[in-house]
Amino acid sequence: MLKVGDHLPDFESVNQEGETVNSSDLKGKKLIVFFYPKANTPGCTAEACDLNDNLSLLQKEGYQLLGVSADSVKAQKKFHEKFGFQYPLIADESKDVVEKFGVWQLKKFMGREFMGIVRITFIFDEKGICIRVIDKVKTKEAASQILEN
C-alpha cells in the first residue's frame, strides 16, 4: 500500500461521465484521493456526502478531491447525480488504480474472507508526494479527519 513519502502513481481511468482522468493532470495542487468499497452503500454515501458538504473548506485549504471505487461508469454517474457531488468519481472497473495504490486487499466480513477495496484516504502535496494516509476513515467525519493536522 502507498505510504507517506511515495509519489502519486501514474494512472489513467475514466470518471462518472466516461471522460479520461490522468494522474499527470492532477499535479500542481494539493490532492485528496479517497477510496470507497461501493457506490450508493450507507458508509460510502456518508463519507462521500460529508466530503461534498465540506468541499468549500477543503478547497479553501487548496485541495482538489477525487473519489475512486471499482464501480462501473453507470453506477458512478448514478451515485454522482443522486447526491450532486461537486467532484469527480473514478470508475476503476479494471482495478488498475486500486492496485497501484495498494487498496485492493483481503477483507473479512461476517466470517467471510474476500478481496475488495479498503476505505482509505491519501493526501498529496502539490508535487504529488503522499503527505498523509488516513486508514481508519470515520465515514461521517471524513472531511474533519482530513482538515485536522
Score class of each variant (00 low, 15 high):
residue 75 A to S: 10
residue 41 T to M: 02
residue 39 A to C: 04
residue 64 Q to E: 13
residue 42 P to T: 09
residue 132 R to E: 08
residue 5 G to E: 04
residue 20 T to C: 09
residue 100 K to P: 03
residue 85 F to M: 14
residue 98 V to H: 04
residue 43 G to R: 07
residue 117 I to P: 00
residue 3 K to R: 08
residue 91 A to Q: 06
residue 10 D to N: 13
residue 127 K to I: 08
residue 75 A to W: 06
residue 113 E to D: 03
residue 38 K to L: 09
residue 67 G to F: 11
residue 149 N to W: 14
residue 101 F to V: 01
residue 88 P to C: 11
residue 11 F to H: 06
residue 99 E to Q: 12
residue 143 A to N: 07
residue 3 K to W: 07
residue 49 C to N: 12
residue 85 F to T: 12
residue 58 L to N: 10
residue 2 L to K: 10
residue 4 V to R: 01
residue 103 V to C: 03
residue 45 T to E: 10
residue 104 W to P: 01
residue 86 Q to C: 15
residue 15 N to E: 07
residue 69 S to Q: 08
residue 53 D to K: 15
residue 134 I to P: 01
residue 53 D to I: 15
residue 93 E to Y: 07
residue 31 L to V: 10
residue 51 L to A: 11
residue 42 P to D: 05
residue 47 E to T: 10
residue 97 V to R: 01
residue 92 D to S: 00
residue 45 T to W: 11
residue 4 V to I: 12
residue 89 L to C: 11
residue 7 H to Y: 13
residue 116 G to C: 06
residue 102 G to Q: 00
residue 90 I to D: 00
residue 146 I to Q: 02
residue 73 V to R: 04
residue 148 E to K: 15
residue 132 R to W: 11
residue 39 A to M: 05
residue 104 W to R: 00
residue 58 L to I: 13
residue 84 G to F: 14
residue 80 H to Y: 14
residue 96 D to M: 13
residue 85 F to V: 13
residue 143 A to G: 08
residue 21 V to A: 06
residue 50 D to F: 12
residue 11 F to Q: 06
residue 117 I to Q: 02
residue 129 I to W: 05
residue 142 A to T: 11
residue 136 K to N: 08
residue 91 A to M: 05
residue 44 C to L: 09
residue 92 D to F: 06
residue 84 G to I: 14
residue 90 I to R: 01
residue 93 E to A: 05
residue 30 K to H: 07
residue 28 G to H: 04
residue 70 A to I: 14
residue 123 I to S: 05
residue 91 A to Y: 06
residue 86 Q to W: 13
residue 87 Y to P: 06
residue 97 V to Q: 02
residue 13 S to M: 13
